[in-house]
Design a protein around this nucleic acid. Structure first.
Length: 476
RNA sequence: GGUGGCAUAGCCAAGUGGUAAGGCCGAGGACUGCAAAUCCUCUAUCCCCAGUUCAAAUCUGGGUGCCACCUCCA
């Protein structure tokens, strides 16, 4: 079975073929680190994570690059407002990024390059483009000459004339064509770097061209990002990279849809956004993650608390069945006639359906549906009157348990079994509950019972100390 | 003006020409000391019109509505 992916470049679903057999190289546009990222941004990180996980499931060795944009107008503005350096600001929000993204169960990328660490390579690229006639210096700025790049517009399917008609680009005397975009911008204040054209800073699209090439080579498989990056960011990136290399650089361009609020795009400029951090404080991270993948990655998602609540309820259903299986698998088998083969066959069918769904342009919505179907089959089987835990049944349940783990946890990244952290919280609240009851017992002077509780807890490894400030406990 | 996309039950959402996955909510039933969990049953002719076809949610044409990009934006 081959994977089919929708490629923005061709506008079609295509069979996925990696450049190098068994290996896939992915570049994802990461955040501009001037603030906490919002839930819409989170989708742009979760989507490539799912793609990566699934490709790994299929046996590919994946190299993944996710960049940090740490120099641009927003960075500068924010740093000035807060009276910190660009670098301090970036460090702070990169740290926050990793916290949030870890909570969302993203697998680590192989490289997290920062734009500011690649200025010299960017300058080299500009020099190269000037040499080839794709770029020109105008006063102390350098621009890309789009008319020289004949394929300009191929990604966004825009014609130059049409773009010019609707253009809202700054008209500048310095440019040959209003659509020419900046490669180097003269600047007299920090952040700035020396260059052959004077002090300044790089244009916005340059970093991805440079960093993808440095870490993934002249040609790589997949480039991801939100749909809003199609134009101009990715269009310009293609222009730079391909003008320079003289060949197609990216084979598959994959773009995820937005998160909307009341049907309108969530964005920082509109102010209608929630930070991921904020949402993670209200809902378990795996619920948030599941919410982000219950719809196909290219479709828009409307964000609402109601939907998040629904997702949580639905997830509980899957968790319940996994817990049930885990419980059964730990029980002693009985001798009996019940055969697990039929259930196993059903499970294998669901697995195939899951894989077929993911093969079809990473259709997580359909894939998740098959997990629910499997859950239903298991529940039905386990709750039937003739159910008995025979050896054969137990073996099947063990396999189904692994299936949930492999598909749900490894591929989709949704933890279904009780997590350590959750366990710990549970222990805390259970012990607190018990100690509260014990306190009431003590007030009634029923000390025999109170002591019994303390002793029994002690046997379980929970040491209880009665102090004037109340009962305290710790794991011994 | 140009370009891309969407329109499926109360809500969310899959859907590869053959008569609609799944989830949430709701109703009824089973099980249950109570509660929870779970199971069973029920709830859609797929925006409108026309066409192609033995057969269309799925293809073609037209219409209506919505969204996005064309300025930094995931």
């Amino acid at each position: 079975m081959t994977i089919r992916v929708y490629n923005t470049l061709t506008g079609n679903k295509e069979e996925f073929e990696s450049i190098e057999e068994g290996k896939v190289k992915i570049y994802s546009c990461g955040p501009t680190v001037y603030d906490y990222f919002h839930i819409g941004n989170a989708r742009a990180f979760v989507v490539p994570d799912i793609i990566k996980r699934y490709l790994e499931y299929k046996g590919y060795q994946v190299t993944h690059v996710l960049n940090f944009t740490d120099v641009d107008d927003k960075m500068i503005k924010r740093a000035n407002e807060e009276g910190v350096s660009i670098q301090q600001l970036a460090d702070r929000f990169i740290a926050a990024f990793f916290e949030d993204v870890t909570a969302l169960n993203l697998k680590e990328a192989d490289f997290y390059p920062r734009a500011t660490e690649h200025i010299s390579e960017m300058i080299e690229l500009i020099e190269d483009l000037i040499r080839q006639g794709y770029a020109y210096q105008s006063e102390e700025d350098v621009y890309f000459r789009i008319e020289k790049f004949e394929e300009y517009g191929k990604l966004s399917k825009q014609k130059l004339e049409d773009l010019e008609v609707g253009a809202r680009v700054d008209v500048s005397d310095k440019k040959e064509n209003p659509l020419d975009f900046t490669l180097w911008k003269a600047s007299e204040e920090e952040p700035m770097w020396d260059s052959p054209w004077g002090a300044g800073r790089p244009g916005w699209h340059l970093e991805c061209s440079v960093m993808s090439r440095k870490y993934l080579g002249d040609r790589f498989d997949i480039h991801t990002g939100g749909v809003d990056l199609v134009f101009p960011h990715h269009e310009n990136e293609i222009a730079q990279s391909e003008a320079c290399c003289g060949q197609q650089v990216v084979n598959y361009w994959l773009h995820n849809g937005y998160i909307n609020i009341d049907g309108e795009k969530m964005s920082k400029s509109l102010g209608n956004f929630f930070t991921t951090r904020e949402i993670l404080s209200k809902y378990p991270a795996r619920v948030v993650r599941l919410f982000l993948i219950t719809k196909h990655y290219r479709s828009p998602i409307n964000f609402s608390d109601q939907e998040l609540e629904n997702t949580a309820t639905g997830l509980a259903r899957l968790e319940n069945v996994v817990e049930k299986i885990k419980y059964l698998v730990e029980q002693e088998v009985v001798t009996g006639q019940l055969d697990g083969a039929e259930l196993k066959e059903l499970a294998m069918k669901k697995k195939e359906k899951f894989i077929a769904a993911m093969d079809d342009d990473f259709n997580t919505a359909l894939a998740i549906g098959t997990l629910y179907e499997l859950a239903k089959e298991v529940n039905r089987f386990v709750n039937s009157e003739q159910f008995e835990l025979t050896k054969s049944v137990k073996e099947t349940l063990v396999e189904i348990n692994q299936l949930f783990k492999r598909l749900g946890e490894d591929v989709l990244g949704i933890e279904l079994a009780v997590e350590e952290g959750k366990d710990q919280q549970l222990v805390d609240s259970l012990v607190e509950l018990l100690l509260n009851v014990r306190e009431e017992v003590r007030e009634k002077q029923e000390y025999q019972l109170a002591d019994q509780i303390r002793d029994r807890l002690g046997e379980l490894g929970i040491e209880v100390k009665d102090t004037p400030q109340g009962s305290q406990w710790k794991l011994s």
